[in-house]
């Protein structure tokens, strides 16, 4: 019920600022345009990168952008709200609400412009898929869709864990940069990291590798469905960790308002 109310209020707010929606589309168009241009320029000199041809690479990048749109549209506005509220002391009111803290810290506000930004990358995926593979397996498409949302869950849980540092350190504005680093890492094939970062390094990067890489590989038939266990397992682990972590940091929280 609260989720629907939050959705309705955000929709009303969004209808007031319709120009934002058009501009967000222009931004997505520019971003996709430059991404495609970059791939064209790089692949002018190359046939493939670790077995990924130009079209497969574009689908991987577009998948990353879909995950980005889900996170930025549904979760990020709430993450920035709670980090700011810790700094200015209004987090006390969030704790007083008759709702589970983890719910109000992650869900409630929507950014429709960002969320609808997924339409363009999805269009690109549909346009480029026929160029990569001669046939599509429906189970793979279904699993891909599930894993894309799962990827957004992993990003959300990771960012939540990172933003929870606001409870300990006052100034965490620049943690925002971590998000862009995560995005730039996940939009590249995981084979790239396998060579250099073997052992511990690779294990540390597993949460990132499964966000967009494995779903895209499943869609393109480059890996089998059993790998989806890694993705779902990672999401469950990180969400559980978020709960435990929140409990621990809330014990340290000292209100600054009222």
């Amino acid at each position: 019920m609260l989720f629907i109310e939050g959705f309705k209020i955000s929709l009303m707010r969004y209808m007031v600022h319709r120009t934002n929606f058009i501009l967000m589309w222009v931004q997505n168009l520019v971003h996709i345009g430059f991404t495609l241009a970059s791939m064209e320029f790089i692949y002018y000199y190359l046939d493939d990168i670790m077995g990924w041809n130009k079209y497969e690479m574009i689908i991987l990048i577009s998948t990353t952008q879909v995950i980005n749109a889900i996170y930025r549209g549904m979760i990020r506005p709430n993450h920035s709200r709670f980090t700011h509220s810790i700094k200015d002391g209004t987090f006390d009111f969030m704790l007083l609400k008759p709702v589970k803290s983890i719910f109000s810290m992650n869900i409630g506000n929507f950014d429709f412009s960002s969320f609808l930004g997924m339409i363009l990358p999805i269009t690109v995926i549909f346009l480029y898929i026929p160029k990569t593979t001669s046939f599509l397996v429906w189970t793979n498409i279904a699993m891909y869709s599930v894993l894309v949302f799962n990827g957004a869950l992993i990003v959300s849980a990771l960012m939540f864990l990172i933003y929870c540092m606001s409870f300990i350190f006052i100034q965490v504005d620049r943690l925002e940069e971590i998000y862009y680093t995560i995005m730039s890492i996940i939009e590249k094939p995981r084979e790239i990291y396998a060579g250099v970062l073997s052992g511990i390094g690779m294990v540390a990067l597993i949460p990132l590798m499964v966000i967009a890489g494995i779903p895209t590989e499943i869609l393109l038939g480059k890996t089998d469905l059993s790998n989806s266990v890694w993705c779902i397992g990672t999401a469950i682990f990180l969400i559980a960790l978020s709960f435990v972590n929140l409990k621990a940091v809330l014990n340290k929280y000292q209100g600054a308002s009222s």
């Binding site: 190359l46 670790m50 790239i192 990291y193 060579g195 970062l197």
Partner: peptide, 12 residues
């Protein structure tokens, strides 16, 4: 991340 991307390209 950028280094790794290009190092892989220059392996080929």
């Amino acid at each position: 991340a950028a280094f790794m991307f290009w190092m892989v390209i220059f392996q080929q």
